[in-house]
């Protein structure tokens, strides 16, 4: 792991930044308020009060294939939901991302973690993910160089402020404005 990768792992809004979120679990002691904490989904659901009673931001880590329906009552309390992609070819959390955004109206930060690669980032964005924990060096280089060759004509309507309807086909979409790549 390079130094930059360790210190600035999170790609968001066009640059790499630090990861302020402290990973905790049922066994770990919680850090002093108001450090933001990231709790695995099952542990959060098992003991939500332990985490919500604190004075500090809460994020939840959702593994691939985990059901987020029980999380719905808490969505207003969460500032971050991190969706894990254990392998880039495991696509379950694309659906989960859309459900969280479009069905359940989650408005906080949606982050991709795990095997996050440059070729999947545009797809993740369209599903509502806005930040990316990136380990893969060529991906980090490509993001920094703003080198991302994307297809920016879309045949699916997803709920996104970044896209607008295009032409007569009700499902066709274009980027709202020519944003800088990725």
């Amino acid at each position: 792991m390079s130094d930059a990768q360790a210190q600035l792992p999170i790609w968001k809004d066009g640059s790499f930044g630090a990861d302020a979120w402290v990973a905790v679990s049922a066994e770990t002691e919680l850090p002093a308020d108001p450090a933001p904490i990231l709790v695995p989904l099952a542990e959060f659901l098992a003991e939500a009060g332990r985490y919500t009673a604190r004075d500090g931001d809460i994020g939840v880590l959702v593994g691939a294939g985990e059901d987020v329906h029980p999380l719905v009552p808490y969505l207003g309390d969460l500032r971050l939901i991190a969706l894990e992609f254990p392998k880039f070819a495991d696509g379950r959390n694309y659906s989960t991302a859309r459900l969280l955004r479009e069905r359940f109206g989650y408005a906080g930060e949606l982050r991709a973690t795990g095997d996050v690669l440059i070729d999947q980032i545009p797809l993740m964005r369209r599903c509502g993910i806005v930040s990316f924990a990136v380990k893969h060096e060529p991906t980090r280089r490509a993001l920094l160089a703003h080198h991302s060759v994307e297809v920016r004509h879309y045949y699916q309507p997803v709920q996104s402020d970044a896209e607008v309807p295009a032409g007569t086909r009700p499902w066709a979409r274009l980027p709202a404005a020519r944003l800088p790549a990725a």
């Binding site: 696509g91 694309y94 797809l123 297809v151 045949y155 699916q156 499902w171």
Partner: peptide
């Protein structure tokens, strides 16, 4: 065909 083409949610089924 159009709907399924580069469907962002369904490329890694």
């Amino acid at each position: 065909r159009q709907w399924s083409t580069i469907h962002p949610e369904f490329l890694f089924l």
